[in-house]
Structure formats: structure tokens, C-alpha cells
Nucleic acid binder design. Structure first.
Length: 286
DNA sequence: AAGAGGCCCTGATAGC
DNA sequence: TGCTATCAGGGCCTCT
């Protein structure tokens, strides 16, 4: 699920609904997420004000009482649901497109006066961490690379990060320490638009190719945000969808489809790179 | 030291 | 229908 655009959409929904609202109660049903939820989590946020909500790469940050914060990572299957007191979905948060609250895996419930937010995560690859101040959060994310939408994400930055890299460009795009916020879907799409073979090694990319990655990573992510992110897996009981960028996919999950480029009759190929599905056009991506 | 692969976990789906 | 195998939008850890 959640790559940068999807988390951005969640953030935007949360700003509208929970900014400057007070948390009245917290219920944790399962602490065993990717990392065990801090034993102090409930006390840490109970009766506290959510003073801001922002996003760093694929992380969602809830600022608490102007100083503290909690960091949310959605892993592969984490979703947030805003529901009213009767467990009816009040607003669809983000990329999750069911009208109903899932029945299982509702691990954490954060109550506000008139609604609550529920963290659901079947695979439990997601996690939540608490930080006493934003300085500590900065230290935690110290090794993270810039995200493509950062204004300092420019040609020089890319050159410095990719110079002498033996790593293939697909893995480079997925390496959060080099470039943050991009996941498997958008990595595939960015490389298609850039006409670069995913297996090409970083050190072999010329300036022109780096420029294409630079520009297309910004374009693809911005467009995905504009479309409300991507919703790819159909949950049961689906009934409408928020994110529609999946309709714009050029290569992701398009095995054996015709290459979308005009005058190209090649079919989209699927290979596995470091255990992740990789889709590309052999003709167009060199 | 950088890079590849294993692994954490549940659920949906394909194939027999 | 019911089993098994495979695959998912991530990233930390270990090994080489």
C-alpha cells in the first residue's frame, strides 16, 4: 500500500478532521505490530491535543501538544479509518475504499469527542513509534534520503547519491536512504516514463537519464496525489474508491499488456528484482 | 561497505 | 469444495 502519495492523502484527511482536537481515550487491542507498541503509548497521547499532522516520506506524523509526536508507518496493509460512535464510517480516509469498518485487525483505537480513528493492519508490517520531541524524531530519520518532492531534490543531489553505485536503478529508487517515499508501484512507473531499464546500474546512468528520473519522479508523485493515490487490492465489501491513480498505471501489474507508447508493439514484461515484481517495456526502456 | 536475500504476517487467488 | 502454493504497495537484519 502506502507510498508517498497515499500517505499524503491520509495526512490531508487528518488535517481536516483531527487537527486541534483532543484525544479522549485510547484502546490498544494488539501491540504486536512490526515493532512492539510502546507500553506508554496510551498515557503518552491520552487527554492530549493533536496540534499538527504532517508527512515525512511514507511516514505520517501526529504532533501532540506542540512538542511530542507519534510516527505512523503503514507497512504493506495498514489503513486508518475515521468512524463515528456507532462504528459507522464517517469519512473514508484515503486509499481505503470500503464503506464499512473491517471486522478483523482493528488493532488501535484513538477516541476523540465525536469520532474515533482506528488503525487496521492485517499483516502487521506497519508500526507506530512515540517521540518525546521532534528532535528525537529527526535523529530517528537521520539516515533517510530526500523525497522527490523536496525542493532540494535536484540533479546535484541525485548525482551525489548515485555516483559510483553498483546497485540497479530500481533498487536505488526503493532505497529509502537514497530517495525516500517511493515504493514498488511508483518506482516501476517512474522508470517507464524515464525510458530506463530497471536493471541498469546507478553508476551507468548519464546526466540525461538522471534528469529524467528527477523530473518524472516529481511528476508521477504529484499526479498520483492529485488522483487521490492508488487503490490496488479489492477488499471485500468494496463499494467505491477514493484513489484512482491505479487507472493511470502504465506498466505496474500490466504483464503482457501492450506497451502504452505510441508505435511500440512490445508487450510489458515482468521480472523479479530483489524479490519485488518489476514491470517494464524491453523496447522502450534501455 | 555495499548489496542481495531472508523474513516478519495475513489474506486473496490460482491451480490442481 | 478443499487443499496447497504463490503473491502482495515495506524495510530491518544478516550474511557475503
Amino acid at each position: 500500500m502506502p507510498e508517498l502519495p497515499e500517505v499524503e492523502i491520509v495526512k490531508q484527511s487528518l488535517i481536516k478532521t483531527t487537527k486541534n482536537k483532543r484525544i479522549t481515550d485510547v484502546i490498544v487491542r494488539n501491540r504486536n505490530l512490526r515493532f512492539k507498541l510502546d507500553n506508554n503509548f496510551e498515557n503518552f497521547i491520552k487527554n492530549r491535543l493533536v496540534t499538527d499532522i504532517y508527512r515525512i516520506a511514507k511516514y505520517l506524523v501526529l504532533e501532540i501538544d506542540y512538542i511530542k509526536c507519534i510516527l505512523v508507518h503503514f507497512g504493506m496493509s495498514g489503513t486508518l479509518h475515521l468512524v463515528n460512535d456507532k462504528n459507522k464510517l464517517k469519512t473514508n480516509l484515503s486509499f481505503y475504499h470500503s464503506q464499512k469498518l473491517p471486522e478483523k485487525h482493528n488493532h488501535i483505537e484513538i477516541n476523540f469527542k465525536e469520532f474515533k480513528i482506528i488503525y487496521n493492519d492485517p499483516r502487521r508490517f506497519g508500526f507506530i513509534k512515540i517521540f518525546k520531541n521532534t528532535e528525537l524524531l529527526k535523529i530517528y530519520l537521520n539516515s533517510y534520503g530526500l523525497e522527490p518532492l523536496d525542493q532540494n531534490f535536484n540533479l546535484n543531489y541525485l548525482k551525489n547519491k548515485l555516483k559510483n553505485r553498483n546497485k540497479n536503478v530500481k533498487n536505488i529508487l526503493l532505497d529509502q536512504k537514497l530517495i525516500s517515499g517511493v515504493g514498488n508501484i511508483y518506482a516501476n512507473e517512474i522508470l517507464f516514463y524515464s525510458k530506463i531499464n530497471p536493471k541498469k546500474r546507478g553508476k551507468n546512468l548519464n546526466n540525461k537519464e538522471l534528469k529524467k528520473i528527477l523530473i518524472n519522479s516529481k511528476i508521477v508523485l504529484k499526479k498520483a496525489i492529485k488522483f487521490g493515490g492508488s487503490s490496488i487490492k479489492n477488499f471485500k465489501n468494496t463499494d467505491g474508491s477514493n484513489g484512482t491513480y491505479q487507472k493511470e498505471f502504465k506498466v505496474y501489474d500490466k504483464l503482457n499488456s501492450k506497451c502504452p507508447n505510441k508505435n511500440c508493439k512490445s508487450l510489458i514484461k515482468k521480472i523479479v528484482i530483489s524479490n519485488r515484481s518489476t514491470f517494464y517495456c524491453q523496447k522502450c526502456q534501455k
